[in-house]
Design a protein around this nucleic acid. Sequence first.
DNA 1: GGTTTGTCATGACTGCTGCTCATGTTTTGG
DNA 2: CCAAAACATGAGCAGCAGTCATGACAAACC
Lengths: 307, 307
Amino acid sequence: MQSLLELRHLKTLAAIRDAGNLTRAAERLFLTQSALSHQLRLLEEHYGLPLFARKTAPLKLTPAGDKLVQLADLVLPQIANAERDIAKLREGEAGSLRIAVECHTCFDWLMPAMDTFRERWPEVELDIVSGFHADPVQLLFEDRADLAIVSVPEAESGIAHLPLFAYDMVGLLARDHPLATKPFLAAEDFAGETLITYPVPDEMLDLIRQVLKPAGVNPKRRTTELTVAILQLVASRRGIAALPGWSVQHYLERDYVAARPITANGLRAELNAAVLDDRAHTAYLQDFVAIVREVCVAELPGIQLIG
Amino acid sequence: MQSLLELRHLKTLAAIRDAGNLTRAAERLFLTQSALSHQLRLLEEHYGLPLFARKTAPLKLTPAGDKLVQLADLVLPQIANAERDIAKLREGEAGSLRIAVECHTCFDWLMPAMDTFRERWPEVELDIVSGFHADPVQLLFEDRADLAIVSVPEAESGIAHLPLFAYDMVGLLARDHPLATKPFLAAEDFAGETLITYPVPDEMLDLIRQVLKPAGVNPKRRTTELTVAILQLVASRRGIAALPGWSVQHYLERDYVAARPITANGLRAELNAAVLDDRAHTAYLQDFVAIVREVCVAELPGIQLIG
DNA sequence: GGTTTGTCATGACTGCTGCTCATGTTTTGG
DNA sequence: CCAAAACATGAGCAGCAGTCATGACAAACC
């Protein structure tokens, strides 16, 4: 008769509420759908009440399920706060988090993540390393940054990589562009076009490194600093571009430009946080990574948490 | 790196704080001391900090341990509330809890327990069945009571017994009574004395049923309704009595009377809650039993939870 | 001071249970 | 109406939370 409820169950329930179905919730919790189904069945048997109205999408909560989800929303943050406080006891409150970014579009989610971080770790000095840097990892060694957002996690001694998320790059075209009729863009399709990119070295452009260069395709180029400028150029038929799907969702919904997958299998990219090895276990660095993952999985469409 | 903390740990920590040491805390949780020691070690490894200052009695909390205990005090009641709410969803809020008591001294703890119950289940009609009843279980069948506090759990079809706690009866003597020099009271010691009891049938008096009757001892008798009157009579050398140890702690501390164990092994007694079989799973009845146990283990000296 | 008593720590072992895997059933959406 | 997606279910397994037995240590007690 004693309570079978554990924090694990509350985490599951909150995840199901957030994800809308068992399968996606299971992914976020790094469990199988089966595990959640078993958990739910046990809880429902224990309380003698259904927690979700099945056979409806999105899953709808019964009053009992709602009670438990509310409980989760109340309790889980309290747990997280207490554990942060303990980490502060262990490591001290102070410290600095200077973030180096090599990806222009990252500011979209970096800002809300930094806001949350600032609330939770008010004593940690938070900053973005300004200016563009070809090799942000170098800044870690020079003690000019504490964490770098990088796409390719190159194994390097002294550096640890904490995975953030993976996503697909999409090719962007004017809505009436001839290529927009194709189901996907192949390397050759770029040959006769002008490619619009950020002004960064080629190695940092996933499209060039993984698709065009291997195929020996070398289109005309044009660069600009701002995402919105790239979109504007594409829409006005001055060229085509490749950007992360999540960074242009807003424009696609408004039919400002058209989007197509790149290659038949898509062009997969990922983002990682790089930190110095010996700081990889620092609580506030780990928590920042967790916050970024939370923010991004909630806000960015079409991304997958990795690691 | 993810949180290893579960509600189980919070319950353990709160119990250790309440009990003052691992051994007693383990008893209350129905676990072994070893289990708690292992739990603690794991938590301390996980957080990289000690939670208790060992080698001190009573165990003293470190700041980190204090954080977690505070968390437990915050979270566990929220959990309990939510689970009560779910029980109300399942069974409805209404119902009645009419309590029949055969034990005069029980009112000591019954009142605070009822106060707590009233807070948690405001919709349940709460009452004590007034007047004295030789067979309170009969009241359950007659639907004049919902729960009876009884000492001997006689197996009876249709009745379920929920264990409360066990304790030792103590023999009470005037401070200068000759028997007060003995390490314990034997059956024969009562032969020449006047025995002061509540005015109830002999079968309900543990001393008579378990000690005097088997030994064929039949002392002079005197009865009174009130515990304080029994104490007064004993103190003024009009006789001796046997009462639960927890019910006279107050008087013993003030040296109002002397107390001795009854028989070499003591005279063990216990209290149970009797309810109708088919209501044994009703949430508010079970919760009342849980409240009584909580109140009593916290307030009454020398009792042991049973079941 | 040595013995006793109460308490916590530790290591070996074990049974439970919470998970995965494989598969069946139901629901959804084109 | 069919294919695809999502959920349910049962079997099997591994990890771990617990017990048991014992050791280490401190305080209490002649």
